[in-house]
């Protein structure tokens, strides 16, 4: 059958794409739009490496159909920095060495940003449960959780 013509906003820019019903939003981002910052680790919503925001809500893009996104606003890791300026979370992840191999990092950053936008003073437990769907096999999560909490503290201090 014919492909679906879908118009969305990605990182604030209008984008149109064609996709088949079987293509997920992640497939569209990676294979049709060359936005490969979102990663596929499982294709079943278990690893969170494909995390993006759809209409302001954190989701796994592997569990969203490309065809259902018409009219939606999508934010990916590629839109996280403000031009040349890293988002405070990105900067803190570098300073705190909160990444080792880096494959989970885009998804973790997108998810952490969604948390801090809701709660700029999360407890360690809240950070850990919020990020429970973002698997990391390298770090043991220690430096990730620290970086998120330190960023939150900075953001509170600066507000």
């Amino acid at each position: 059958m014919a492909k679906h013509h879908v118009a969305v906003s990605i990182n604030g820019e209008p984008v149109e794409y064609l996709c088949s019903t079987r293509q997920t939003l992640l497939d569209v981002l990676r294979d049709e739009l060359n936005l490969t910052g979102s990663k596929e680790g499982c294709a079943s919503g278990d690893c969170g490496a494909c995390s993006v925001m759809v209409d302001g809500r954190l989701v796994c893009s592997c569990l969203v159909m490309g065809a259902e996104c018409d009219g939606k606003s999508i934010d990916t890791i590629e839109g996280m920095a403000d031009g040349e300026k890293l988002h405070p979370l990105q900067q803190k992840f570098l300073e705190e060495a909160a990444l080792q191999c880096g494959i989970c990092t885009p998804g973790v950053l997108v998810a952490a940003k969604a948390l801090l936008e809701r709660n700029n003073n999360p407890t360690e437990t809240q950070v850990r449960y919020w990020l429970a769907g973002n698997l990391c096999r390298c770090t043991g999560y220690d430096k990730i959780v620290r970086a998120v909490m330190l960023t939150a503290a900075d953001m509170r201090g600066g507000a």
Binding site: R30, T36, E40, I77, M80, L86, Q90, L94, E95, G102
Partner: peptide, 23 residues
């Protein structure tokens, strides 16, 4: 010392090319 890793910026912005990112 605790320097910023040279490949860090690529890895926090989604630029870094992993195995399946190459075409």
């Amino acid at each position: 010392t605790r320097t910023i890793r040279p490949d860090g910026h690529d890895k926090v912005t989604g630029r870094a090319k992993f195995g399946s990112d190459f075409s």
